[in-house]
Design a protein around this nucleic acid. Sequence first.
DNA 1: GTTTTTTCTTGACGACTGTCCAAGATTTTT
DNA 2: AAAAATCTTGGACAGTCGTCAAGAAAAAAC
Lengths: 212, 212
Amino acid sequence: MTEVAQRKQDKIARRQVDKFDARRTELAVATLHTLAELGYARTSLREIAQNSEFSHGVLHYYFADKRDLIIEAVRQYERVCVTKYDEVVAHATSADQLRDEFVAMFFDTLVQDATLHRLWYDLRNQSLYEEYFRADVLEIDGHREDMVWRVITRYAELRQATPAASPGTAYVTLDGVFQRALLHHLSGNAETVAALRAELPDVMDLLVKSSG
Amino acid sequence: MTEVAQRKQDKIARRQVDKFDARRTELAVATLHTLAELGYARTSLREIAQNSEFSHGVLHYYFADKRDLIIEAVRQYERVCVTKYDEVVAHATSADQLRDEFVAMFFDTLVQDATLHRLWYDLRNQSLYEEYFRADVLEIDGHREDMVWRVITRYAELRQATPAASPGTAYVTLDGVFQRALLHHLSGNAETVAALRAELPDVMDLLVKSSG
DNA sequence: GTTTTTTCTTGACGACTGTCCAAGATTTTT
DNA sequence: AAAAATCTTGGACAGTCGTCAAGAAAAAAC
């Protein structure tokens, strides 16, 4: 085969791979939405297919089995949800501003992306029972911790203070508040959510201490 | 009917009810263990029956349906797990002792009752998708918060300090540490668990402040 | 335009699910 | 000892599940 023909072949092969991957991603996104709506326990392949424009059989053309599909959906979640607060951090010029905008973003995504967030907690928990996507969960959890840490260190910096807790503690605290707010939001308990919102600035201040 | 005969009838009726309830409880406990082992998504009635000494048909004699059974299992969980730390609180005579024994108990139950704890988080999360046992979940969550608050207030008292956070914040923080420790424990990540253990005293101190 | 390759649909499979029920076993009451 | 009430079994039921394969449809290559 000539060099030119070889290059042409490669280009075709690459295009096919790209197309294949694009469809995989498309189906993984449909899976993500179905999971968010129904939860891990109630999501079937036929239901996923109905949330796409294909029939259920196609899923086994693009994925080895259900696990393979769910792993890909988890990775889609990662791409979506782990840089939410970075623009707030980059944009804020004072501690009060960062705090206020963080709180606003926190409760905005709580309401806006509630089903996606409950899916995250569902998946993290399922990984306690089945190992097959645990590695992805741990990776995402790490990225979430990093994101929280960027917020807290920047907040401390603007306050001319230092963090009062480790990255891990800061993460589980804010994540705990979020989990609780999500539970009460989905339970229709608006006043509890409002109380958590009013309290979140105090929680942030708890995580930094004034003196260096 | 004479008064005596009436009383006798009542006694019989009560005995029957007691027996019925005893069997219900027995089956609910078997359900709880099956759920802890397999998780909500993978627990079937036949599997539950196999973890008891009865056949699967009997479950519909004592419970209206699967939901009814799971609700009862959730309530069994509540009876088991929400007074763990009270003896530590009652027994401790110094802040250091309370802190050390709390940490010890914390990581003891983490390992000892790991499957039961992961079930709790699973059920709390399922209640974000289905409403039918959400009330029980919220009640249990409240009891867990109360328990944590008893620990923290007593710890602050012994330290001659006051709590630095609200009951809710204190709860989500310690519960967040626990969730994270559980995840890494079940992932076989012993050194991360050890790090969380080493850090837990600092987290407790974060939740109380020295000056009144 | 025809052949080849890729993509997708449809229907079937065996296994499993919650639910219900007829029948029998067991216990309690008379 | 007979009768009645209670308890338990095991199988049938209508669905649903993940998986797979044969063939239709579409796209690409020639």
